[in-house]
Simulated scan of single mutants.
Amino acid sequence: MLLKLLIILLLLLMIGNLMLGLKAMLSHRDPALMARYIGRRLWCAGLVLLLLIIALATGVLSTKPTPF
């Protein structure tokens, strides 16, 4: 349950950073600011993928069996 909440929190953080990056891009202020927000979003995405791979490998999460 804690893993799922952490993944949901990271996904919400990704959406927030994406919106902040869009706001920085549209305001034409500092291009480095937009790159920082987009970089944070990519780190969150990588962390979510890593958590999912670790959870599947350790058996915390399980996939659905095939119907065959």
Rank of each mutant, 00 (worst) to 15 (best):
residue 1 M to C: 07
residue 1 M to L: 06
residue 1 M to P: 03
residue 1 M to N: 10
residue 2 L to V: 05
residue 2 L to K: 09
residue 3 L to C: 00
residue 3 L to Q: 01
residue 3 L to Y: 05
residue 3 L to R: 08
residue 4 K to F: 05
residue 4 K to N: 09
residue 5 L to E: 05
residue 5 L to V: 06
residue 5 L to H: 14
residue 6 L to G: 03
residue 6 L to W: 03
residue 6 L to M: 09
residue 7 I to S: 01
residue 8 I to D: 12
residue 9 L to M: 08
residue 9 L to G: 02
residue 9 L to A: 04
residue 10 L to H: 08
residue 10 L to T: 04
residue 11 L to Y: 10
residue 12 L to N: 15
residue 12 L to R: 14
residue 12 L to F: 15
residue 12 L to Y: 10
residue 13 L to Y: 14
residue 13 L to R: 05
residue 13 L to P: 01
residue 13 L to M: 12
residue 13 L to S: 12
residue 14 M to H: 07
residue 14 M to T: 15
residue 15 I to C: 03
residue 15 I to T: 02
residue 16 G to E: 13
residue 16 G to V: 07
residue 16 G to H: 09
residue 16 G to C: 12
residue 17 N to C: 00
residue 18 L to K: 01
residue 19 M to Y: 08
residue 19 M to L: 14
residue 20 L to I: 00
residue 20 L to P: 00
residue 21 G to C: 00
residue 22 L to Y: 14
residue 22 L to Q: 04
residue 23 K to E: 04
residue 23 K to V: 02
residue 23 K to C: 00
residue 24 A to T: 03
residue 24 A to K: 01
residue 24 A to H: 01
residue 25 M to P: 00
residue 25 M to E: 13
residue 26 L to H: 04
residue 26 L to Y: 09
residue 26 L to G: 07
residue 26 L to K: 10
residue 26 L to A: 09
residue 27 S to I: 04
residue 27 S to L: 13
residue 27 S to K: 14
residue 28 H to P: 00
residue 28 H to S: 06
residue 29 R to T: 05
residue 29 R to G: 05
residue 29 R to N: 11
residue 30 D to L: 07
residue 31 P to Y: 03
residue 31 P to L: 06
residue 32 A to K: 12
residue 32 A to M: 11
residue 33 L to E: 15
residue 33 L to P: 06
residue 34 M to P: 06
residue 34 M to S: 12
residue 36 R to G: 01
residue 36 R to K: 15
residue 37 Y to V: 02
residue 37 Y to T: 05
residue 37 Y to K: 04
residue 38 I to T: 07
residue 39 G to I: 01
residue 39 G to L: 00
residue 40 R to G: 08
residue 41 R to W: 10
residue 42 L to S: 13
residue 43 W to S: 12
residue 44 C to Q: 08
residue 44 C to S: 14
residue 44 C to V: 08
residue 44 C to K: 04
residue 45 A to E: 09
residue 47 L to P: 05
residue 47 L to V: 13
residue 47 L to N: 03
residue 48 V to K: 02
residue 48 V to F: 03
residue 48 V to G: 00
residue 50 L to P: 07
residue 50 L to R: 06
residue 51 L to F: 04
residue 52 L to Y: 12
residue 52 L to K: 06
residue 53 I to D: 10
residue 54 I to H: 02
residue 54 I to K: 01
residue 55 A to R: 06
residue 55 A to L: 13
residue 57 A to Y: 09
residue 58 T to I: 12
residue 59 G to Y: 13
residue 61 L to C: 07
residue 61 L to E: 11
residue 61 L to Q: 07
residue 62 S to P: 10
residue 62 S to E: 15
residue 64 K to D: 09
residue 65 P to C: 07
residue 65 P to R: 15
residue 68 F to C: 06
residue 68 F to V: 07
